[in-house]
Design a protein around this nucleic acid. Structure first.
Lengths: 126, 126
DNA sequence: CTAACCTTGACACAGCCGTGATAAGGTTAC
DNA sequence: GTAACCTTATCACGGCTGTGTCAAGGTTAG
């Protein structure tokens, strides 16, 4: 009986019950149900709820974004189409775009290194 | 002179000039510029503008979704985090999932470093 | 059997998104 | 040199998203 009700789950994860229902509605976390219909949040769901919040705040993304990523992962035809479209990026290295490219590439390094050091400290803490 | 102005590009692709600027702003299609600042849409951009519309209508997605997919593709740390979160989906009540999560976290260093070196070689190639 | 939960559904509302329109000013083409 | 384009910036605005709250009713536990 280590399954929590929606209020309890909300309390221990920092979400509101309303948001837990919303998160379920957009397909991100769908807890099991009792025969009565009550949602049961197990340790797995609780963990995912907490990491979901980290994911959102650390990367400045929103629930809808994660939902779309899920859709991408589940719908191979969709992800194929999107990938194909993105692949066709005509990134010839002419002045401005190459500049921009370089800039975010450099920022990416910065981000990755920042993440590395951050993770190092966080992982030992966690 | 096979580069069109924004109005011409709008006309032949079915977008409005306004939307072409918006599409550029969210990073999806960034045409080259003349020295005066005028945007130049070449055949590649025109093609991508048309296929972009198809992509949206066929899969019932929106510009913001494509922009997020682009962000996922460009930001390895982000896509890694999202993937890891989505990966944890199989919510079996067995305790193994938390274990697996830990392993992923531990392997994160290896992946980030791999991404770093990969990008270094790729950047010189691209 | 009652209190305190849970369920779905609906109304509300701020904020953002996609889009149009307009302004003030620079560029191009004839 | 003027008409017709282009640029950025700004205001506007309907609709969707995320979130709260309430209503009407079912479930659980002491």
């Amino acid at each position: 009986m280590d399954a929590l009700t929606i209020h309890e789950a909300a309390q221990t994860t920092g979400w509101t019950p309303r948001m837990l229902r919303y998160i379920e509605r957009i397909g991100l976390i769908e807890p099991a149900r009792r025969s009565s219909g009550y949602r049961q949040y197990g340790p797995g769901e609780l963990q995912r709820l907490r990491t979901l919040r980290e994911l959102l705040t650390e990367h400045q993304i929103e629930l809808g974004d994660v939902a779309f990523a899920l859709r991408l992962r589940r719908d191979n035809q969709l992800s194929g189409s999107v990938d194909r479209w993105l692949e066709a990026e005509p990134q010839r290295p002419d002045a401005v775009s190459a500049d921009q490219w370089l800039r975010w590439e450099q920022e990416k390094h910065a981000r990755i290194i920042a993440a590395l050091t951050t993770n190092e400290t966080m992982e030992t803490a966690a």
